[in-house]
Amino acid sequence: MQNTPNSNRTNIVIIGSTNAGKSSLLNSIVEQNIAIVSDIEGTTTDSVRKAMELLPFGPVLFIDTAGFNDETELGKLRIEKTINEIKKSDFAIYVIDGNNFNEIDYKKNISFLRKYSIPFLVAINKEETLNEEVKKEIKEKIKDCIFISTKNRESILNFKEILIKKLNILEEEPSLLKGLVPYGGKILLVVPIDSEAPKGRLILPQVQVIRDALDNGLNILICRDVELEKTLEENKNIDLVVTDSQVFKEVDKVLKDRYPLTSFSILFARQKGDLNKLLEGIENIKNLKENSKILIAETCTHNTSHEDIGRVKIPRLLEKKLGKKLNFVFSAGKDFPNNLEEFDLVIHCGG
Rank of each mutant, 00 (worst) to 15 (best):
T72M: 13
F248P: 01
N158L: 10
E290G: 05
V329Y: 15
K22W: 09
D90S: 08
T262Q: 12
K166D: 10
G310I: 01
E319Q: 15
N287G: 05
I138G: 00
K186V: 05
R270C: 10
G67F: 00
I169R: 15
E137Q: 15
F264I: 00
Q246D: 10
E41G: 09
G333S: 08
I309E: 00
I34L: 10
I210W: 04
P337T: 04
L318Y: 12
L255G: 05
K324W: 09
N168A: 04
I86Q: 05
H348V: 03
S47R: 03
S155D: 10
I347S: 07
N152Y: 02
P59Y: 02
S155N: 04
R49H: 14
S7A: 05
T304M: 14
T65W: 01
K87L: 08
L278R: 06
F120S: 06
F159K: 01
P174N: 10
I309T: 03
P198Q: 06
A213R: 00
T72D: 14
P119T: 09
Y94I: 03
F343Y: 15
E227R: 13
K286L: 13
R49L: 13
K143E: 15
E307H: 08
E41W: 01
D212N: 12
T10R: 13
F68H: 04
T150N: 13
E103V: 13
G58H: 03
F62S: 00
N102Y: 03
L232M: 11
Y183E: 15
L25F: 11
S28L: 06
N27Y: 07
P5L: 08
H348G: 08
T72H: 13
I104E: 15
P174C: 11
D225C: 07
F330P: 02
N219G: 08
A269W: 02
T129S: 13
M1R: 09
R153T: 14
L232S: 01
V241C: 05
S155K: 01
R153V: 14
S149C: 05
G75K: 07
I282W: 08
N235P: 10
V254Y: 06
